[in-house]
Every structure is written in C-alpha cells, then in structure tokens.
Design a protein around this nucleic acid. Structure first.
Length: 488
RNA sequence: GGCCCCUUCGUCUAGCGGCCUAGGAUGCCACCCUUUCAAGGUGGAGACACGGGUUCGAGUCCCGUAGGGGCUACCA
C-alpha cells in the first residue's frame, strides 16, 4: 500500500490538509505501506517560497513520518512536480498522438467570450482540420493540450467511502492537460505521478469528486491500472457554513475564542501534538468502543478508509480544549516541565527548574493549554523582589471589607510565623484552626491569603503556593498587602 | 443555472432491517466534593430534516422535497 499527500506550496500548512494527510498516513501505516509527500507546484503564480519547509515542519511536529518526499528522497523521485516536466510533456504528447487529446489554440480572449456566452469551452479545436492546425503551427501560435472527453454516455467511479458515483460525460468539458507554458495541470500531473510513484490509494478532498470521471477517462486512455480512490469529507467552519480551508489564519469563533487553522497556530496556542492528532482522527472517523482518547499507535491498528464518514463536518474546535487538558493531565510531569519552560521564558520569566518542578503538579489539572501557565503561575518565576501587593479589589474577598481583610492578614502572620514546618498540610491545619478561632470561613481566610501572596484572584491552591514561595517570602508578601491596605 | 456529494442531540459521532423506550463524547445546566480556578463524581435537558414507498418490521433500503457543501479556470 502506498498513499500520498500532495499539497501545493501555497503557504503555511492548513489543518484541513493535515487531516487529509493524516488519514492517508494512518492507512499506509495500518497496512505497513509507504506514505509519500509530493509537492504539486505546477501553478507558478501561486507557489510561495518556503512553503515546503512549513509543511515539513508541521508534519515533524505532529510526528507524521514521511517515507518518500523532497527531503527524504526515494526511488520514485523527484517528488516535486516542477522537476518532472518532461514526463508530463511526454505523456501529453502521447495522448495527442494516440487521439485521446488535442491541441487547442483558443486565446484567452476567445475563452473569456465563450464563458460569457455560457457553456464554457466549445471544443472548437477538437475536430480542427489538418490544414488549419498546420497553419497555426507554422505561425508558432501558443496552444494547450486538451483531453477529448466522450460526448455521450457516462462514467462510473468507485469511491471507497461512498461507493459508485455516476456522471454523464456530456457534463464534462475538454479539460486542459498541458498549459501553454508547458506546465501540466493537476489533472495530468497527478495521474502521471501517481502511476509512476506506484500510489495504490489516492486520497483527496471531496472537491475533487466532480473531476473524478475526467481522471478515470485519462487513466483509461493511458492504459494504466487505476489505484483505489477515497474522496475525503472536508472540515467546515465551526458553524457549519462553508469550507474551513477558505480561512487563511485563525479567527474568532462564536464564543469569541480564537479558532486556529494553521499548524503553527496550534503550536503557538499550546496544544500538544498528540492531542491534535487524537482530535483530528475523531472527525469523520472514530475509534470505536465509545473510546474518545487513544494513541496514534492504537488508531493505526483500527483505521480503515472504508469507515470514514462521507459527510463533511463542522470543525469541533471546543473539543480540542478538552482533549488537550486530558493530555496535559496524563503527561509525565518532567515532560510537562520541558514544555512549560520555553513558554514561561518567552513571556519574560527566568525559569528556575526546581521551582517549576514543584509547581508542575499543581498546574497539571488546571491547564487547558500549556499557554495557560503564564497567567496561572507566571508569578512564581517573576523577580520576587519586585513583587507588589495587589489592589484592594483583588485583596478583599467577596462579602468582606478592608478592615476584616487586614485583620485576617495581621492575625495570620504569627500563626504562620510559629510553624516549624511550612509544608502545605501543616499550614492548612494551622490556618483552619485560625479561621475557626476568628469566626471566618476557610474560604475567606484562604482566599485573602491567596490574593496577598499570589497577587491574583485565581491561582494554584494557597498553601501549596506559599510552600513554594517559602515562609519568608510568603510572610513578606502578607505584610506588603497589609501595608497597602492600611498605609501607616 | 447545470452537475455531484452529504443529512442522527448545538457540535463530533455510534448505529451497516428487528439488540433503539437511539448509545458515547463535548458543550450547557444542576447537585456533590471543595481554599479560588480547575479536576473528579452524580444527574438532567438535548437528535433519527420532511413526505412517500419497500417490508411482518426502517434511523437503517428506494424515490421525491427541503436544507447544507462542493465543482463548473491554461488553480490545485
């Protein structure tokens, strides 16, 4: 089994393409075959330098390994279409010589007029006389090569996902195979390449279904054995309206949260590659057994293109947050630290690894994305000497006033001061007694301390936080808060 | 407009004629736990687009309608 992903180098890697590639890759791996990357750069106008690196970067990040491709090489290269032009030209010529295709000299202006009149290309050169052709040829008139589509009858295509699909031949135009600049169109190039690269299963998005009969006719004209075809459903916008692939970058969803679409945006948003892979494979396909969380290795054992749901799906991005948080919770603590460190550093913090290791267990159940570490726990890594007491609206808890808050802070100092161990359980026991003694609820006391030491309304648990800050620093912060509340 | 594809809770999905008084997940709501936020636990609301057939029996098969998506380039 040999499958491929054949993107055009038109910019950053889009999530929709990754999903299509993932299905092809899963299928190849399931059957112990090869997964090939081929770059389809036959549209010179749309090619963007650096695209291949971005595509490769996305696959590397996700761990989708490529067996053959422009970087990996392979026995069937080159894997970039612009380096295979002669091949396409040879076969275009062969099709013309054998009566399956013809040269068309219609100018852009003529074509525009035909389109305006409706109906598209009128096949005016399909049966042009030799004399006419020779005249144009002698003049060196530019031409394209068009495929002679049967005028009557129908073509039936077998699709692995939806069964047989029948098309009336008269509906199809005489498609251009070779452009006037000598470059092939997708229609010719992909067939020549899939044949010579021995691709066994062509997977591509459903938008290719309408040209499926054309491709079948070309394969037949060339006399080559056809591979199997699977037209994959596409991702729609989260609201179900329109293709997601039209979005060129992340955008705001209905809930106001940003919806990532580019591989780099998933990285930047703090999603884990394993979570993204799990997320993607659950759209249009499912693991079975009502199991939502599974490894790629497990998915490979079960994946089958035949099981892919033919319907397009709205992009269920909210589910990724949940999946990602599940992966973070299950992650190895040391590994989580490795992920968190660069994010904190990028946010401007100097990360002490020991401290990070102590904080990590507190963060593991609280992060939806690794990015969340910054607002949740950045304060652990800031320069403590620069810490300032938070404003009163953060310090003073609900149903409390400044006076009561100050009282709690003032009273906490000797209690904490007198502790032999500053381990969180010890603090908890002592502060619980203290709260009871002064007639406040645990939440009021603990919350006040939380705000004082972390400077935040939301933070990891108060006593665990103070344990990491240490007795001295914690007390210093409590005193600071006291001062800001009741300036001397 | 023409052609093609698709249609189960808001969303992702299970279901391949009787196991369905339609299952899971997410999201939402409630309660429990609880020092905030989470996590976790329990429970709840929530779907077979519609109309015809076929069949003893249809979410499952067929036709039509509607809705959605796509294609209709010397782009892929």
């Amino acid at each position: 089994m040999r499958t491929r992903y054949a993107p055009s180098p038109t910019g950053p890697q889009h999530i929709g393409g990754i999903r299509s590639a993932l299905f092809a890759w899963l299928y190849a791996r399931r059957h112990g075959g090869q997964f090939i990357l081929r770059i389809e750069d036959t549209d010179r106008k749309r090619s963007i330098p650096g695209s291949v690196e971005m595509i490769l970067g996305a696959f590397d990040w996700l761990g989708i390994d490529i067996d053959e491709g422009p970087r990996e090489g392979g026995a069937y290269g080159p894997y970039v279409q612009s380096e295979r032009l002669e091949l396409y030209q040879t076969w275009a010529k062969w099709l013309v010589e054998n009566g399956f295709a013809y040269k068309c000299y219609a100018t852009a202006q003529e074509l525009a007029e035909m389109r305006k009149a409706g109906g598209g290309y009128d096949r005016r050169y399909r049966d042009a006389s030799n004399a006419e052709i020779n005249k144009l040829e002698a003049r060196g008139a530019p031409y394209v090569v068009r495929f002679k589509m049967p005028l009557t009858g129908s073509t039936i295509g077998a699709d692995m996902i939806r069964g047989e699909v029948e098309f009336a031949n008269e509906q199809l135009q005489d498609a251009v195979l070779l452009k006037s600049d000598g470059y092939p169109t997708y229609h010719l190039a992909h067939i020549v390449d899939d044949h010579f690269m021995k691709i066994s299963h062509i997977t591509r998005a459903v938008e290719w279904l309408p040209s499926f009969p054309l491709h079948i006719r070309i394969w037949n004209a060339l006399g080559w054995a056809k591979p199997q075809f699977a037209h994959l459903p596409v991702l729609l916008n989260p609201n179900g309206k329109g293709k997601l692939s039209k979005r060129k970058e992340q955008f705001a969803g209905a809930d106001g949260k940003s919806v990532p679409v580019l591989a780099q945006e998933f990285i930047d948003a703090g999603y884990l590659p394993a979570a993204v892979l799990n997320f993607l494979s659950n759209i249009g396909w499912n693991f079975g057994d009502d199991k939502e969380i599974f490894t790629t290795a497990q998915a490979i054992k079960r994946f089958d293109l035949r099981d892919v749901n033919p319907a397009n799906s709205a992009y269920p991005i909210a589910k990724l947050d949940w999946l990602n948080s599940q992966y973070i919770q299950r992650a190895d603590a040391a590994q989580l630290c490795r992920l968190l460190k660069p994010i904190l550093e990028e946010a401007g913090y100097a990360v002490d690894e020991t401290r990070l290791a102590r904080a990590a267990p507190l963060l593991q159940v609280r992060l939806k994305s690794t990015r969340d570490v910054v607002p949740m726990a950045g304060f652990f890594f800031a320069d403590w000497a620069l810490f300032e007491a938070p404003p009163a609206d953060i310090l003073v808890q609900r149903k409390m006033d400044g006076e009561g808050t100050a009282g709690i802070l003032r009273g906490s100092i000797p209690v904490l001061q007198g502790l032999d161990s500053f381990e969180h359980d010890t603090q908890y026991a002592a502060m619980q007694d203290y709260a009871k003694a002064i007639g406040y609820k645990n939440g009021q006391v603990f919350g006040t301390l939380r705000a004082a030491v972390s400077g935040q309304k939301v933070s990891p648990p108060t006593f665990e936080t103070m344990e990491i800050l240490g007795k001295e620093e914690s007390l210093r912060r409590i005193k600071l808060a006291l001062q800001s509340l009741a300036p001397a």
